[in-house]
Nucleic acid binder design. Structure first.
Lengths: 196, 196
DNA sequence: GTCTATAGTCTGATAGAC
DNA sequence: GTCTATCAGACTATAGAC
């Protein structure tokens, strides 16, 4: 008996929950959080609305559960970067970590980079998307508060997130996408680039 | 009697319509198109829902009217760029034109760069946001179909649009914002940069 | 664990008075 | 040109059977 993630006693439950979250993410990406109803999620899963409510008490809870893994990883990477001594190392660590999260989650980071519905749903449970944005901007921009750097950093974050989640690049394998997104970040943040 | 735009015989009407569109844009930016109800628009204007319906038959019509001026200008700039002979000139014209539109409309371009509700509302009347994205990508990326260039171009478009519409840069005057956004575009598209 | 049935609210939209 | 009043339908969410 190989223990699955968080080894559930009864089988199937964790699977339905996972399928539900994957379906919700897909629909959220396609129609936006506010544009996606519980009915749409239920229909796509082939179950009823009430079945969805068995797994999650509210729609906001679904939104939170969809966003959680990405936000958790992002939180970790930002914290790690903050602890580094040299600023160049901070920027490099945050950039590579951020790009890696974008690539592995694809549409998810793009979703909460742009959807007001996600922010609204998470204002209580998480410290808001804006908080991540601010902390990342501080590291990328540096203490000087230079406007040009701030705008470049903002463009890097949004550009990487939305491009990594764009459907037209969905076919690219992780390594290829990661390399190109890193290149985007290095250009905008003024970091040394590898051979392209 | 100085003729206003499209000189309306009765006064006041054009003004209410303009106020309505400005209010709608603000709310759309804040809550997303699907997250904004006609009730919210009416309340913000201090009128009733029925008063809103006097000016526009449907919500989609409001969305279309909000997006129209930006899309019209974008369409023009893309067409102008296409007619140029040298590829470098095409890229430069499209970049400066795009940045200029972003700066003058601020939140608007960010809105239809990211909100699925806008795309859905305009699938009939306009040839869809995707069409603009494709045409811009063709010019920015070039005929070779290089993946690195395509990703850089996509990041440039989304990064410029979302950064230009970001609330944290709303205080910057047009010239400053334009210069920095141009810099972002030139870095990503590999165009020569002026002195920073 | 998934269902039916339904409550209660809000939506976009219409008709018609002023 | 803006209002009141109202519509049918969709929404989130709940209660309780199986």
């Amino acid at each position: 008996m190989t223990a699955g993630p968080a080894a559930v006693s009864a089988s199937g439950q964790e699977d339905t929950r996972t399928r539900l979250l994957a379906t919700a993410l897909r629909l959220f990406t396609e129609h936006g959080v506010e544009g996606t109803s519980l009915q749409m999620i239920a229909d796509a899963l082939g179950v009823t609305k009430a079945a969805v409510y068995y797994h999650f008490k509210t729609k906001d809870e679904i939104t939170g559960a969809v966003a959680e893994p990405g936000l958790r990883e992002l939180d970790l990477v930002v914290a790690e970067a903050s602890r580094l001594r040299r600023r160049g190392a901070q920027v490099d660590h945050l950039l590579t970590g951020f790009v890696d999260i974008v690539v592995r989650h694809r549409t998810l980071v793009a979703l909460f980079s742009r959807d007001p519905g996600v922010t609204r749903a998470l204002t209580d449970s998480w410290a808001t998307r804006e908080n991540f944005s601010v902390r990342m901007m501080e590291i990328f921009t540096g203490p000087e508060g230079d406007t040009n750097r701030a705008i470049a950093a903002h463009a890097a974050i949004t550009g990487i997130a939305l491009t990594g989640g764009a459907p037209q690049f969905a076919d690219l394998d992780d390594d290829t996408l990661r390399a190109h997104l890193l290149d985007v970040g290095r250009r905008l943040l003024g970091r040394p680039r590898r051979v392209s």
